[in-house]
């Protein structure tokens, strides 16, 4: 089966700094990584391929330097990488992103064989909307399986997939037909180490690079800023709270005295916490009887 995995290159957010005066994000020198959630999608795709045969194509839309992430994905064992890059894509919101990606996935299918499963991450760590997966599924008319914790069964003969999906208050066991779009939940698997052979292959691999035209994007007006219904009007820093915490206790107090002082302060300041706790304690005592 032919599987496509969508990965996004994101700034390593642990290292992002905000300029104190201009409130802009200082990206210079911030290293980029594959969106961590996408690694679960990639690993799941590789496992399916190893089990069922077929190929894994990784796809990213981004600036030319996003090639780094694709090369990394090849190191882990992906068979092929496609970079979608064009100034028409700049400034895409999720609607425009899913439009460009789904056009490219169609083209990938036409070029290297029909796509049975598209994988995406649960969400990214920068945009963090979780909207691109459902967007791709809707545009391609694929059955949509989000927050998948486990893939129980894939029957390529019958074209049936069975998964466990995280839902509110429980797990849904769903069965649907191929082709599907799956977003993987974090922690559902552990990324393999790349083998030496894949690393060597990845270093020299040719990465297919498509602009909008090469990817067969039907309408560039639906891409990038022009194709984005959302408009970012303002970016600003949160207002800090005026007062700092009041420190409880005096020097030399024992821990018992500190704890008592804290409790008194909580009860004095909050209108209902003490009453709630007494009610809870009384209920507990009832239970013991």
């Amino acid at each position: 089966m032919h599987i496509v995995v969508c990965i996004k290159q994101v700034p390593d957010s642990a290292q992002i700094r905000v300029h104190p005066v201009t409130n802009t994000i200082m990206r210079q020198g911030v290293p980029t990584i594959i969106n961590p959630y996408d690694l679960f999608a990639l690993e799941e795709a590789l496992r399916l391929r190893d089990r069922l045969g077929g190929e894994v194509t990784v796809l990213t839309m981004g600036p030319p330097m996003a090639e780094d992430s694709l090369r990394k994905a090849l190191t882990f064992g992906a068979d092929r990488a496609v970079l979608l890059t064009d100034r028409f894509f700049a400034g895409s919101d999720t609607l425009a992103t899913s439009y460009a990606l789904s056009s490219a996935i169609k083209k990938i299918g036409e070029t290297w064989g029909p796509v049975g499963i598209v994988f995406a991450g649960k969400q990214t760590i920068d945009g963090d909307t979780a909207q691109v997966g459902p967007g791709i599924a809707t545009r391609m008319g694929f059955n949509q399986l989000t927050y998948v914790a486990a893939i129980c069964d894939v029957d390529t003969e019958k074209g049936i997939v069975e998964v466990e999906r995280r839902a509110e208050g429980g797990v849904q066991v769903l069965q649907t037909k191929l082709p599907v779009l799956i977003t993987m939940l974090e922690g559902s698997n552990e990324m393999r180490r790349g083998s030496l052979t894949s690393a060597l292959r990845a270093a020299n691999a040719e990465i297919t690079t498509w602009n909008a035209e090469a990817a067969g994007v039907p309408d560039v007006q639906s891409c990038g800023l022009r194709g984005s219904p959302t408009v970012v009007k303002r970016v600003f820093a949160p207002t800090p709270r005026a007062e700092r915490a009041e420190e409880i206790g005096k020097p030399g107090m024992s821990f018992e005295e500190l704890a008592d002082a804290a409790m008194d302060e909580i009860f004095a300041r909050h209108p209902t916490v003490e009453a709630d706790l007494r009610e809870f304690a009384a209920g507990q005592q009832e239970e013991w009887r």
Partner: peptide, 23 residues
């Protein structure tokens, strides 16, 4: 923005071709 809401909102917004702001 629950697991249900996030699954649904993206499909609805894409079908209607309108903007969706998350979280």
């Amino acid at each position: 923005a629950t697991t249900l809401g996030r699954d649904l909102a993206g499909s609805v917004a894409t079908t209607l071709a309108t903007g969706l702001t998350a979280d």
